[in-house]
Amino acid sequence: MKTLLAKTKSMLRKTIDLLLPALFPSWRFFKEVGPSPRVEYRVVLKGQRTAWRESHPVPERVGLGSVIARMVWNPARNTQLYMVSLSERLVSGRVEHSASELNHLIAAKIEESQGDLQFRLMFMDDEGGAITGTVVYESEPVPLSEVRR
């Protein structure tokens, strides 16, 4: 009974925490342009590691037809934007859900079916006029079979 009460309380608190920013939004869009995340992954199979590759990279160019179509059908881009949010949440300390979601989203896009999946977050920033990337998080490898939905 105590556990149920504690769980209900925790669920209510979380609901309020999630709801309040929507009901009283701060609207501080692009207040500043800080370090920006890229998600990279590799697969570890029998001790062999592939090179790090960017997950969900943006295309080289997007034609006018695609731009128009994306106004009404844009699931891939919205997934990319969700991954940006997840990366920012993860480095702010909300690790469990963000890492799990990133693992699922990366695994859904890659060809490999065996081995362990590992990802890292590279944050790009301007340092002295040059763009540099800093790895701020590296996940524990997890079996691909576990993270494929």
């Binding site: 342009v33 920006s36 890229r38 943006v58 295309p59 080289e60 160019r61 790009m124 301007d126």
Partner: peptide, 17 residues
């Protein structure tokens, strides 16, 4: 400068171009 940086290295532009 901020908007320059949005295009230079942020994750927001829809293409590298």
């Amino acid at each position: 400068r901020a908007l320059v940086n949005v295009f230079r290295f942020s994750a927001y532009p829809v293409s590298e171009n």
